[in-house]
Design a protein around this nucleic acid. Structure first.
Length: 390
DNA sequence: AAGACGGGGAG
DNA sequence: CTCCCAGTCTT
């Protein structure tokens, strides 16, 4: 009731201001927009790749990944035909690795369900794996010029300031309101540029902290500025408590100086990526004995002479992980026969994410494999570089 | 509706 | 250190 009338009110204000906002924003965008690699094309596949990479990830981080990825997988058919390991390798260091599998699944859907032609309707785009309301709006408006809105973190903040919305943006009611406002504002004649200009404003001018209102092309239309404290909008999200985790991992080498790695299992984080064997332990656990026991029970490996090679810290979402990297030698009687230790299969076969065993890898071959940054830090401690791409 | 997911860069 | 980013999917 109250919500409905408040929504009606803000929608009326949005419609009132729509024309000046569109004009000012699009003119500003034409003048000031950053040159970004995915803005040089209207290829919907390229837009899809960029949008998946940009989910929860900053532009500056994405740029080199996008360029490498497009060079390696220039179209949906190439991506669909590629080994999953190659796709994960291209994603190494970018995070949210699930997105890489979604993207390849989307490529499969384009090839198998749309005969290789990128779907052109908003509804069809929305059915692609990894594509939610935001990404569908982005592809539909930017690549196909469809007059649909989009709301991402930037747009939500800009709208909250323009209309002085201080509700909880995560609530479904507020989400619905933001999308309704964006829908009322979107420029049907130029939806792609309008949507991008909204995001560009949020990224470059209307920043979370210290917004550059003096450079804002639409400052006159901003309710939050009139109220004197634009930074107050939107309301801050309650933060989650950080959880401390102690992680012990084992670096075990075979006679050829290959390192034993596991493939992250389905249903776990970093699924499909290579990782060092290891386990979470309690603060008062003895890491060496826990690792030895784990190696025996999980891999039938007789890990001996454990030594602490080094430590690293890694923070993911609200987990603060203290990593301990231990080296070990293999005791007598540990061999491929009678254990779950296996020779690495050729690329593509070794990439099966359900492979639970330990496989031994020549460090030089790891470049062609997905390794998350968490494992990358541990590998660096034992002298194996798997940088966030060279 | 809430939680999981990876990581980094800015302030 | 804290915040939060061109979000989506699962439970």
């Amino acid at each position: 009731m109250t919500t409905t009338s408040a929504t009606d009110d803000v929608l009326a204000r949005a419609r009132q201001r729509a024309t000046p906002l569109r004009r000012a924003l699009i003119a500003w965008f034409a003048r000031e927009q950053r040159e970004l690699p995915w803005r040089a094309t209207r290829d919907p596949y390229a837009i899809l790749v960029s949008e998946l990479m940009l989910q929860q990830t900053r532009v500056d981080v994405v740029i080199p990944y996008f360029e490498r990825f497009m060079q390696r997988f220039p179209d949906a058919r190439t991506l669909a035909a590629a080994p999953e390991a190659a796709v994960l390798a291209a994603w190494s260091g970018l995070g949210y690795y699930r997105r890489a599998r979604f993207l390849q699944a989307a490529a499969h859907a384009i090839v198998d369900e749309h005969r290789g032609a990128f779907p052109r309707s908003h509804d069809a785009i929305l059915t692609l794996p990894g594509v939610g309301p935001y990404t569908a709006g982005a592809i539909a408006s930017i690549a196909f010029g469809l007059p649909v809105p989009l709301v991402d973190g930037n747009v939500a903040r800009v709208l909250a300031r323009w209309f002085a919305l201080d509700g909880d943006q995560r609530s479904s009611a507020d989400q619905k309101r933001l999308w309704a406002i964006a829908d009322a504002l979107v420029d049907a004649a130029n939806p792609g540029d309008f949507n991008q200009s909204l995001m560009e404003l949020g990224a470059c001018i209307c920043t979370p902290r210290a917004p550059r209102c003096s450079s804002c092309p639409v400052a006159r239309e901003c309710d939050a500025k009139k109220l004197g404290d634009p930074e107050r909008f939107p309301a801050a999200k309650p933060r989650k408590a950080t959880i401390d985790v102690r992680l012990a991992v084992l670096a075990v080498f075979d006679a050829k100086r290959r390192i034993g790695l596991v493939r992250r299992a389905a249903g776990t984080r970093m699924e499909g990526m290579l990782d060092l064997p290891g386990l979470e332990i309690a603060a008062d656990d003895d890491a060496a004995s826990e690792l030895a026991r784990h190696a025996r029970s999980a891999f039938r490996i007789d890990a001996r002479t454990l030594e602490l090679a080094g430590r690293a810290r890694h923070t993911i979402t609200h987990h603060r992980i203290a990593i301990e990297v231990w080296t070990a030698t293999l005791g007598n009687g540990t061999s491929a026969k009678g254990s779950s230790v296996r020779e690495p299969a050729p690329l593509g076969i070794a990439a099966r994410p359900d492979a639970a065993g330990l496989t031994f890898w020549d460090p030089a071959r790891l470049r062609a494999e997905g390794v998350a940054n968490l494992a990358g830090k541990a590998l660096r401690i034992v002298g194996i570089a798997h940088a966030r791409h060279a």
